[in-house]
C-alpha cells in the first residue's frame, strides 16, 4: 500500500536529502516534498522540469490612519509586540507579526484591514516519474511554517507514495512536516552529536505515536553512539549505510547515486522495501490494537 514517509533527523547534515531523493528515485512513481524551506536542496538533485511557481503569502495588518481614533486597543492586544504607537498612530512591524488577525477584531473603528505579504513560494515540477514539490522561504523571513502548511495540502490529497524531506531539529517546523506521515524514518550519524540529536527526534515521533525506524548513515569502523542508542531503546534499525567516498562525491555534485551506479540502486531499493514492509506491519498492528 502507498505510504507517506517522513525523513527526519535532529542534527543537520546526516543525510536526509540524500536518502529522500534516492528513495524517491527507486520508488519511481511518487511525490517528493521538500519541507526544509529555509535551505531546500532536493531540487538540486531532482532537477525538475516544467516548474510552476506559487507564491505563499501571510496576512499583515494595514492601518487606515484617517479612521484611527488612537484608542490603542490594537497595541494593547498584540501579544507579539508587532504594533507600536508612533506619532499618535499605530505602526506595524511586519517581521514580528504572526498574522493572528486579533488587531482587526479588537479595533472599534474598523480602521485595520489586512494585506497579503509574500514570504516564499512553492515550486512544483516533474523529474521523470517523480513529482517534485519544494518550498522555499524568502531570505530575511523568520518562519516558514505557512509554506509547509501549504505543501501539506497536496500531501494530504496524494494517494500514491510520498517522501517528505524534513527540516533539521525538533521544533514546530518539524512537527508540521510529520503530522500527515504514516511512517517516520530517522537518519543518524555515528557521533555523540548524532546520538544526542537522534534522541530528540525519537522522543518527538513517540509523542506523536508515529511508527518509526532508523537508518545509520556514514558508518565507520569503531564505535557508533547512535547505534548504541537504538539497541538500548529497542528502536528498529532498517539499514546501515557505510561511509563511502563515491557516495559522498556523487551527492556533493547533486547527483542521485541510485541513478548513477547499480551498487547504490541495489542499496536504496533494498532499503525502500524494508521501509515499506515495516510501515505495513506497523499499520497492521495499529489497526489490531
Amino acid at each position: 500500500m502507498a505510504k507517506k514517509i517522513a525523513v527526519l533527523s535532529g542534527k543537520g547534515g546526516t543525510g536526509k536529502t540524500l536518502l529522500s531523493v534516492n528513495l524517491a528515485s527507486v520508488a519511481g512513481d511518487c511525490l517528493y516534498v521538500d519541507c526544509d524551506v529555509e535551505e531546500p536542496n532536493g531540487h538540486l538533485f531532482l532537477k525538475p522540469e516544467q516548474v510552476r511557481k506559487e507564491t505563499v503569502c501571510v496576512k499583515i495588518p494595514v492601518v487606515e490612519k484617517a479612521l484611527c481614533d488612537g484608542c490603542r486597543n490594537c497595541v494593547k492586544f498584540c501579544k507579539f509586540n508587532a504594533i507600536a504607537f508612533m506619532k499618535d498612530k499605530p505602526y506595524v512591524f511586519e517581521e514580528v507579526c504572526h498574522s493572528c488577525g486579533g488587531c482587526v477584531l479588537v479595533c472599534p473603528q474598523k480602521a485595520i484591514a489586512e494585506k497579503e505579504k509574500p514570504i516564499g513560494e512553492i515550486r512544483r515540477g516533474n523529474s521523470n516519474r517523480i513529482k517534485s514539490h519544494s518550498g522555499i522561504m524568502n531570505v530575511g523571513e523568520v518562519s516558514g511554517v505557512p509554506i509547509i502548511e501549504k505543501l501539506m495540502e497536496a500531501v494530504r490529497k496524494e494517494s500514491g507514495t510520498v517522501i517528505i524531506d524534513c527540516p533539521p531539529g525538533s521544533a514546530c517546523i518539524v512537527m508540521e512536516s510529520i503530522k500527515d506521515a504514516d511512517y517516520c524514518l530517522l537518519v543518524a550519524e555515528p557521533t555523540v552529536f548524532g546520538a544526542h540529536n537522534l534522541k530528540m527526534v525519537y522522543e518527538l515521533v513517540r509523542l506523536f505515536n508515529k511508527p518509526h525506524g532508523v537508518v545509520l548513515n556514514k558508518c565507520l569502523p569503531g564505535e557508533n553512539p547512535a547505534e548504541d542508542f537504538c539497541i538500548k531503546n529497542n528502536v528498529p534499525i532498517l539499514g546501515r549505510i557505510p561511509f563511502d567516498k563515491q557516495l559522498g562525491k556523487l551527492s556533493s555534485d547533486a547527483l542521485i547515486a541510485a541513478d548513477e551506479d547499480e551498487r547504490f540502486k541495489t542499496l536504496f531499493s533494498g532499503l525502500l522495501n524494508k521501509i515499506m514492509e515495516e510501515a505495513d506491519d506497523e499499520t497492521a498492528s495499529d489497526s489490531k490494537r
Partner: peptide
C-alpha cells in the same frame, strides 16, 4: 561551508541573510 552543491546553495542564502 561544505563543498557540495547543496552546501554552496545554502551558504549563499545564509550569507545574504
Amino acid at each position: 561551508a561544505e563543498p557540495s552543491l547543496s552546501g554552496i546553495s545554502d551558504m549563499e542564502r545564509i550569507i545574504k541573510t
